[in-house]
Amino acid sequence: MISFLLAYITLTLFGMILLGIYGVATRSNLIKKIIMLNVMGDAINMLFILIGYRLVFPVFPPIYEKHITFEEFLSRAVDPVPQALVLTAIVIGMAMNILLATYAIQFYRLHGTVDARDMAEIMGGEGE
């Protein structure tokens, strides 16, 4: 049962990542691209946390407490490394979002469009 649930969640997350790549590649609206980038990023973060999880019961957060012995702590605490990776990734993702959204808004104010094909024409490249 538990392995079925784990496989189900993991495959859903991988599906979300592929969906994100698909959305970024095929939609031409910049706002939709940013939204799909977020879907992808959140799925990847979730996957990281899932990798750090341990199938033991009860499972502890990686924090030392007085009433837990050291051996018990080592055998029960989840892996702290993926959590540390995700912790900063979330905020950097938010900052990246702000940067992208700002550029999209400013482009819309200047040229009245957020479509990537129009953008290519305006900037002098070759549109489709």
């Binding site: 392995s3 784990l6 993991t10 899932l50 999880y53 341990r54 199938l55 490394v81």
Partner: peptide, 13 residues
């Protein structure tokens, strides 16, 4: 991915 194990990775340990 090594999901669903009860073991820690050496780095985490």
């Amino acid at each position: 991915l090594g999901l669903g194990g009860a073991e820690l990775r050496p780095l985490g340990e």
